[in-house]
Design a protein around this nucleic acid. Sequence first.
DNA 1: GGAGTTTGTAAGGAAGCTTCACTAACAAAC
DNA 2: GTTTGTTAGTGAAGCTTCCTTACAAACTCC
Lengths: 377, 377
Amino acid sequence: MRPTGKLLPEHGRAHNRSLVLQHLFHNGPSSRADLARSTGLTRVTISDLVSVLISEGLVAELGIRPEGKVGKPATLVGMRTEDFHVLAVDLADDARLRGAVMTLTGAVVARRSASLDGRTGAAAVAVLEELCADLLTAASTRPVIGIGIGSPGVIDPQGTVISAPNRGWYDLPLAQRLTATLGVPVYVANDANTHALGEFTYGGAVGDGLMVVTVGQGVGAGIVLDGMLVRGPNSAAGEIGHVTVVDDRDLRAGDPEPLLCACGRHGCLETLLSLPALRRATAAGTENSDAVLASVGRKLGVALAPVVSALNLSEVLLSGPPELLDGPLREAALATVRERTMPLIGQDLVIRTGSLDEDGALSGAAALVLNGQLGVT
Amino acid sequence: MRPTGKLLPEHGRAHNRSLVLQHLFHNGPSSRADLARSTGLTRVTISDLVSVLISEGLVAELGIRPEGKVGKPATLVGMRTEDFHVLAVDLADDARLRGAVMTLTGAVVARRSASLDGRTGAAAVAVLEELCADLLTAASTRPVIGIGIGSPGVIDPQGTVISAPNRGWYDLPLAQRLTATLGVPVYVANDANTHALGEFTYGGAVGDGLMVVTVGQGVGAGIVLDGMLVRGPNSAAGEIGHVTVVDDRDLRAGDPEPLLCACGRHGCLETLLSLPALRRATAAGTENSDAVLASVGRKLGVALAPVVSALNLSEVLLSGPPELLDGPLREAALATVRERTMPLIGQDLVIRTGSLDEDGALSGAAALVLNGQLGVT
DNA sequence: GGAGTTTGTAAGGAAGCTTCACTAACAAAC
DNA sequence: GTTTGTTAGTGAAGCTTCCTTACAAACTCC
């Protein structure tokens, strides 16, 4: 599908407005003249945009800049990041839905959760809806910008869950439905994808070309290229959990036997790299657990090498328990990718654990709202 | 690097103008009312845009639409694809530079080539420049929109060759330089990348999520996602030639021995999948050449599987001699990718040979110009 | 021939950005 | 203490771009 869609002057306005918010979000309070310089727009236009943002309450004047330089002192304006709330929900866990009220900077203000008790389908939607309503009351002190939801499964750009087997959801227009019933903009996306977006928005991910590998019940991945989430033609980008990494044909010393995967095939990455699998492997023989982790890391590295090469990624983040991921596993993965790619590609690559780990999924969901509602990335 | 850059009304205008050209290019002659319907702009705006395009000569009125329906008969307007020329140059070959004069639809009008005779660096630039001048005279019957050049190496979005070892070019602002000396807009990009763009623009690539694997002296790849070329943070996306696909640790029956690669490492994809390697392999024992090709295909499939999964690609094109690529190699690659990815991903995947093969590189270079100069993709 | 439909254009208006001109408020130099 | 130069922010006029409304032209169908 080739890019289509007309571009009206008002879209340009919205873009420029996001540019201002983007700058204020990432660089902190600035003067109007600063904004003009860094966006390339004139001071007149910036003044106009800022006055609208102030009248909407998103931005406030913060007084005169302290440092005295030559010329008229600047009036600082800043985003009121603490005066609005974003609700975030993480549906990654099969048993409990975890939610939080957050400020625009990603600070958690309150937490709520709900148990699924094995419910799926419409019943699971009801639990989610109740949790959201619960969060809405918890956030009643401040206006709520929107609700972000990270869910496992394949989800299209409009927030329709195309397929989420674990929740029993198929072709479910979740975002649309919740937006209607809750009266607040709701965004839904794949959990690994939101994770990547969260790291890009809140985390220390500086450069472009970021891939976040999320290790939980299974493995997922999200990729950010050119500041945009890669979704893929069928919205199924990032589904690397079921790539074969253990061949049953070339067993070699030290390699694990290809295990049966939930998908019905053998030797998927997910049979090695997932919390259940890692816990099983490390608990059994604590003796050689480092060796096991390194072995999994090597398998991950083998799978990553072609992706890193094809996309010229600069950073791969592993998200999950650092005690499992941040040791031999990470090191082996990095070493393996470097071994298997050309120096120009592999040498500059960084593999590290996510900077938001504990609340990574929630931050990602919040970033979804920031991105959709304010254009901030 | 996060997306920045102001958006002025005139940029919107340029975008909408491209939208019109895009529609005319891909859907053929249309009425103004048709254009209005498919772009979402009003008939008034379309009339205005079309009148500008007509005054520039890019578009012409073609008379009344034959089919008589109810209402006032429509006046067809169409892009004057045959009344302009694009020059394309392919630098993939180490010995000869191949160039062509093409119409906007990619039809070759004239060919020219030049021998490098081992020249590199500035001397090679001089040969290229001469070839371009030669093409310009050959194209003198019609206005030339621009020149597109596909070159091996790493090339940044501005057309600066960051590194092209085979030509001895490093940090060479080739596009800028040739634009200045030739007085025509010049675009330069990696040959595999332009190839992908060409397939997307001219070829039958319908869906999104396209990867083109170009097999020549070496292997390269170009990826088109969301209608845009993936360049990567260091402009090195697509460099899959030096991904390790043969492990020296797990030799198994039927596997080739990991060969020394030009990059100094062993077992790179390029040591198996490149014209010299394939020719050597198939010439030696014609007996089992199918088996050898299938084996290479399997190795390619192993490398592709993670990429296809991570990006949810829908189509992989193999570009090169069909007699080598379009048989057992292609089939083995497809089978292997399907074996090694989850059904949702692999089942819909198509692997085929490029539809532009003979002049694929040239078409890609031409597409570069169309894209840059007219916004047509 | 009239009614209905579709195409294309003209006129007027709203939105968005720019340039030009101006005031305000400061530091540094004399 | 005054002058000079710099920087910040705003107001007015103007250009571009698109839209809505209105209308004429040209066809089919009845």
